[in-house]
Design a binder for these strands. Structure first.
Lengths: 248, 248
DNA sequence: CGCGTTCTTGACTGCTTTCAAAGATGGTGG
DNA sequence: CCACCATCTTTGAAAGCAGTCAAGAACGCG
């Protein structure tokens, strides 16, 4: 009961995000509200799915942060990507819905089954939102590859912060360029292919440069414009949304 | 005419790959043969799609190598991934079939429209093969992220060679652990987040170690077992195929 | 208040890049 | 058939970014 109540309170973030990705009919929002009634929580540090097991059903993340990880035999760990509120866990579009990598809860999560509808049938706009979400997912992977392959430590963190800013904006979780960042520097290191020591040093450079503030799990981007200029990349989201709308 | 003839000759690779990914009915193979009649070539170094433009139709790569790239404003380039014979260009499963990144032909390509069928309808096994192919695509992206984020130069090249070995095997393009590798060291560098100089040095270490032979655009993995042990990673393909078959 | 986790800092090492230039290699035209 | 040119590969020396190791400070939770 308590869980359901909290889920209803937090479905707002997912609704906002999906509504931004596609025009959703009232019936679509209803499906969403109903799905949220079946919400459940996942404790922090738990795994949603072990490698090799399928998630029974595609899920919608209502609140909290999760990440997909891969670990080498000697213990080196790579975070492949994060899953933020309003995003999908598991792949809603395909039948072959297997979770290919372990999915770990960074914070406590609230998840609910993603609203479904008969295949090829009218999803009241949700099917379009799912498709856009999946397209964005792939974009984030491409961005991650570019960061890891061709950016310096400073650029990686900068680019990553900007991406988080955008993604969280979709769910209405950014206020005055600041947002909650519930990750340790070691997690950042594992995501960006660095050591935690170097993450720490790079963050201090950024603070000294007046680019951001970061304390108590909250970041504030003081000069997002300058940051964007530093990495000189077009935002995946702007690009994708623009195209999706143009194509319609 | 000449093009069509060549396409028919090379459809074999794609057929082999798709048949390995899923059980395909005779009608499915027929669709494939028919699609191959509409094959066309793309000259080496040409772009199939510029960033922001959609590929009109999902394509099947019958022969040649292509790659997706991303370039930073200052010219640094990252190859996000390669597309090998028998693999899909554009995403066949989704409606939102937009090409999100430039797709460049490394060699001359022969492509044909991927056989289609009514949505939600029986694709005679092809729909399953497409789904498996897409799942593998995502796996390759994950592998790429792990390489770039957490592997040394030697490990990156090793892991990458093993991946190519596997992927080309699906299309029957590996014989006695050797296969055609039509890329310059600079392309390898752009793919693996290194400089061409360091690629060169690392390849020489591998040759000296007796791990591989490489000349005239052909590689031979002399000790794939030792290479696999070096990177200690489970092959994405084996993992994925195993799961797909188990789930059925 | 105490303990474990996370953050910081310093010194040293080293993998990779950078810069530069000398060999191969392969295709083209005389 | 060979000269020639562009591209690609190889090599050397020096510089730099990031990693490693270690230990102290700060933070947060029970």
């Amino acid at each position: 009961m308590r869980q359901a109540a909290r889920a209803v309170a937090t479905v707002e973030n997912a609704r906002l995000r999906l509504a931004t990705l596609a025009r959703i009919a009232p019936e679509g929002f209803e499906l969403l509200e109903n799905a949220a009634k079946a919400a459940r929580t996942v404790p922090a540090r738990h795994e949603i799915s072990r490698d090799g097991q399928a998630i029974g059903h595609p899920l919608l993340l209502l609140s909290g942060w999760a990440c997909r990880t891969r670990t080498l035999i000697d213990g080196r760990r790579q975070i492949l990507g994060f899953v933020l509120p309003g995003e999908l866990l598991g792949y809603a579009v395909q039948d072959q819905d297997v979770a290919l990598v372990p999915l770990a809860a960074i914070t406590e999560l609230i998840v609910c089954p993603a609203p479904t509808f008969p295949p090829g049938h009218d999803g009241h706009g949700l099917e379009a939102a799912y498709a856009a979400s999946n397209t964005l997912d792939r974009e984030y992977l491409f961005a991650q590859i570019t960061r890891l392959g061709r950016m310096s430590a400073l650029e990686r963190i900068t680019d990553w912060m900007l991406e988080l800013h955008e993604r969280l904006s979709l769910a209405g979780l950014v206020h005055a360029n600041s947002f909650h960042l519930p990750v340790t520097q070691e997690l950042i290191a594992d995501a960006l292919g660095m050591t935690s020591v170097h993450v720490n040093r790079t963050l201090q450079v950024m603070r000294r440069e007046g680019l951001l503030e970061l304390h108590g799990g909250t970041v504030t981007l003081l000069e997002p414009g300058r940051m964007a200029a530093m990495v000189g990349a077009v935002s995946p989201m702007r690009r994708t949304l623009h195209r999706l709308h143009a194509g319609h």
